[in-house]
Amino acid sequence: MELCLALTAATSSCQVHIAAYLLPHVPQQVLGALSVEILKAAGERSGGSLDGVAFLLQSDFLGDPAATYAVADIIAKSEDEAVAPELKTFLRDHWSEGAYMEGLRLGQEHYMNLVRIIKWGESPICLRDLPAPLTVAIAYLPLYRECVKAGGCLFSQRLRGQLVEAARRLGDRVFDEVTHGRELVVFLENHLPNFLLHPPRTA
């Protein structure tokens, strides 16, 4: 229990460097056994912010993406009234299986909107006449930048769903629920113009 409190105190007070130091020194079986309680405690001690919870999840605190996503989903679906409503809402909207499906839906909707613009848009700039990399950049550079800003080892399920859908539209490889975020971002990055990813430095 002291370990649980130490981790959640570190994350809930935004002292993420302390939590980052502690996590690698804790046996995985211990983290696994306490995973639900750690996230619940981080939510309870959030002080109105869930940054600590987000840090634990983004850092893949269980050392296993599937397990880390699963524990977030368990709490999101929990009917335990002792779980802070704000924590359940946060996990349901961003880290649950439902959030992954919503991310897929948003990705599909985004793609269909792009197709409509290309086919029937009245903009003086005809997207279909642009080089393919620029069309991809218009479609997916905002998503890429959101992922870069999020950082961490894992992306939220909502973001991951959008990445999976983007990757499916861009290539012949099969991406599904077992594909994790970093691989998807690298795949997306390879389809974006390099000058947009690494703009030249100004004097």
Rank of each mutant, 00 (worst) to 15 (best):
S35C: 08
S35F: 02
S35I: 02
V36Y: 06
E37K: 06
I38H: 00
I38Q: 00
A41I: 00
A41W: 00
A41P: 00
A41T: 11
A42I: 05
G43S: 14
G43E: 05
G43Y: 00
E44S: 14
R45E: 14
S46H: 05
S46A: 15
S46I: 00
G48V: 03
S49E: 11
L50N: 01
G52C: 11
G52M: 11
A54D: 15
L56H: 09
L57N: 06
Q58E: 15
Q58I: 01
D60K: 12
F61I: 08
G63P: 05
G63W: 03
P65D: 06
P65A: 06
T68D: 07
Y69I: 01
A70P: 03
V71K: 00
A72M: 07
A72W: 08
D73K: 02
I74T: 13
A76G: 09
A76P: 06
K77I: 01
K77T: 08
S78R: 11
S78N: 12
E79C: 06
D80R: 09
D80M: 07
E81N: 09
A82I: 08
A82C: 10
V83L: 07
A84Y: 02
P85L: 13
P85E: 13
P85N: 12
P85V: 12
P85F: 14
E86H: 06
E86G: 14
L87M: 10
K88C: 02
T89N: 05
T89K: 11
T89G: 01
T89C: 02
T89L: 11
F90E: 10
F90V: 03
F90W: 10
F90T: 03
L91N: 08
R92M: 14
W95C: 13
S96D: 03
S96A: 06
E97G: 13
M101K: 08
E102T: 15
G103D: 03
G103C: 10
L104R: 14
L104F: 05
R105L: 13
R105H: 12
L106C: 07
L106P: 00
Q108W: 05
E109Y: 15
H110C: 12
Y111S: 10
N113G: 15
V115G: 01
R116H: 11
I117A: 03
I117R: 08
I117Q: 05
K119L: 11
K119N: 08
K119G: 04
W120A: 07
G121E: 02
S123E: 14
S123N: 15
P124W: 03
P124S: 09
I125Q: 04
L127D: 08
L127G: 09
L130H: 09
